[in-house]
Simulated scan of single mutants.
Amino acid sequence: MFVLTIDQAASRTSPDRIPELLELLRPVRTVLPWERSVGDEAQGVLADPADVVDATLLCIRAGGWYVGIGIGGVEEPLPPSPREGRGSAFIAARTAVDRAKRTGDRAPLAVEGPDGRADVAAEAEGVLALLGRHVLGRSEAEWRILDLLQPGERGTQTAVARTLGISPQAVSKAAARAAWHEERAVRNAAARLLAWTDRQG
């Protein structure tokens, strides 16, 4: 199981953004719903590693969030709220979000897994950090294009070009600059590493 603890950066000097975060993450599937946990933090419990990747990169793109990903056990029966949850995944998520605050110029995320699987958790964190670097480096103009692209769909670049009134070549160049095609493959790699860490727990 995966627990995400997400902490707002600079919360003492900026408005409360937790409602904005909960709305951002609402489409991401959970086992226990996204909720404010304490103060400037939110938490969710997820089962699918691909959803963990989606939630993490949404937070990185939005900016101003520290993301801690904890992998491990969650005590059953599951409570109605993450705030009442117990288990090693919750402890790991707390450790991870605290470490995410110390990543410096790197994407502000961290992954903590079960004892004995720190190597795989570190690999998952490294792949997510690389993805985060690309996400952080994209311009608004690139995002306008990328948000309209559909992976694996023929003719999508032409359709996007028509929608935005630009050339297909401009769409292709933007996707290449942003490493969009590579991201699709690397997202799968990150999800597999997260799943492997979970299975070995």
Rank of each mutant, 00 (worst) to 15 (best):
V52Y: 10
V45R: 09
L78G: 07
L58T: 00
V52H: 10
I60H: 12
G64I: 00
W65V: 01
P49S: 02
G73H: 09
A47N: 12
V52R: 12
A62P: 03
I69G: 08
L58Y: 05
L57G: 04
P80G: 04
C59N: 06
I71D: 12
L58W: 04
A62G: 03
G64P: 04
W65S: 00
V45Y: 10
G72Q: 11
P79L: 07
C59V: 02
G63R: 14
G70Q: 12
P77N: 01
V45G: 03
D54W: 03
I60E: 06
G44F: 08
V74C: 13
G72I: 07
A55M: 06
E75G: 03
A55E: 09
A50F: 07
E76Y: 07
A42W: 00
A47H: 13
I69Q: 06
A42L: 01
Y66F: 15
T56Y: 03
G44R: 08
V67M: 00
A62V: 02
V53F: 02
I60Q: 06
S81F: 11
C59R: 11
V53A: 00
L58H: 05
P79W: 11
V45C: 14
D48A: 15
D51P: 03
S81H: 15
G68I: 05
P77M: 09
Q43R: 13
L57Q: 00
A42C: 15
P77T: 00
G72D: 10
G70M: 13
